[in-house]
Design a protein around this nucleic acid. Structure first.
Length: 277
DNA sequence: CATGGTTCCTGCAGGC
DNA sequence: TGCCTGCAGGAACCAT
């Protein structure tokens, strides 16, 4: 499930393999691979030279020697792979871009929550990304003002940090991890927390995602892989996600056991002993 | 405007 | 063995 560290791993992999290359052929293999509000078909990138691969939160985009940009979101199962041109198609191959160096950049997506989109930049950011907040890896991320913003929200803290318009890049896994590190119950109301608690939470999210990035990301169910098809190794370091029924890693001080509770049609994992409301 | 609920999709695990 | 149900999830979209 790609969140900020996983998307950044993919972005960096693409940057290494495709910047400076020219797209010599484009093929879309699934109608929904392209967002319905795309400004054009993917073939607009034929003969375009790739200049940069950028990212905000979980959204990334390719810039070219022309005004159009290619925006991509991995959803929950999207993958970019670099393959030798003409290799067999993957089971869920959605689009492929043949490059000038004999390779292909491929977008593969089993569950079709991911998408591609032809867009244009508005003040350096694609218009479909303009409503997305800065992420915790962004040098312009303003922690103090985001803490204030979060502190005004009346919703549950987990819902707030998953809101990509408040702070971007955090998904279900790292939300649970950060809340555990900060010892905050996911159902706590954001405005009931102190600014110190919220600051600690953002710092925890930053730290856990930085460590995850260093490990190449989290590959919980093999749906996330980097551009070379390799898994990340952060899964073994998770404190709560996927650990329900197991002892809290702070057991020496709390003695708790990780539980799973319902959260807006899905789940939260937490230690009920050290994450109190 | 803020907030909360629903929906899209596929594959897999578990129960019977 | 095979059918059914539930679960996994990001974010657009709709309802209140």
């Amino acid at each position: 499930m790609p969140e900020l560290p996983e998307v950044e791993t993919v972005r960096a992999g693409l940057e290494k393999h495709v910047v400076g290359k020219k797209i010599i052929g484009v093929k879309q293999l699934h109608p929904r691979a392209l967002r319905s509000d795309s400004l054009n078909k993917l073939t607009v990138f034929k003969n375009a030279k790739i200049k940069a691969v950028k990212r905000r939160g979980k959204f990334m985009w390719l810039e070219f020697d022309r005004p159009e940009v290619l925006v991509a979101h991995l959803g929950m199962s999207g993958q970019f792979k670099i393959q030798k041109a003409g290799s067999d198609n993957e089971a869920h191959l959605r689009a492929k871009f043949e490059l000038s160096n004999g390779k292909e950049m491929r977008f593969v997506d089993q569950r079709t929550f991911g998408w591609l989109c032809v867009d244009q930049l508005e003040e350096g950011v694609p218009s479909v990304v303009s409503h997305i907040a800065t992420d915790l890896f962004d040098p312009t991320f303003d922690k103090k003002s985001i803490v204030k913003k979060i502190n005004l929200k009346r919703g549950q803290i987990k819902k707030v940090i998953l809101d990509q318009e408040v702070v971007s890049g955090i998904g279900n896994i790292y939300a649970d991890e950060a809340l555990w590190y900060a010892r905050i119950h996911p159902e706590s109301i954001a405005s009931d927390l102190s600014s110190t608690q919220i600051l600690n939470l953002l710092t925890a999210a930053q730290k856990v995602m930085t460590r995850a990035l260093a490990a190449g990301g989290t590959s919980f169910d093999e749906l996330y892989i980097n551009v070379n098809g390799e898994s990340g190794y952060f899964e073994r370091s998770l404190a709560v996600y996927g650990r329900e029924g197991e002892p809290c890693r702070r057991q020496r001080t709390c003695g708790g056991e990780i539980i799973r509770i319902a959260f807006t049609n899905r789940s939260s994992r937490l230690c009920p002993a050290c994450q109190t409301r």
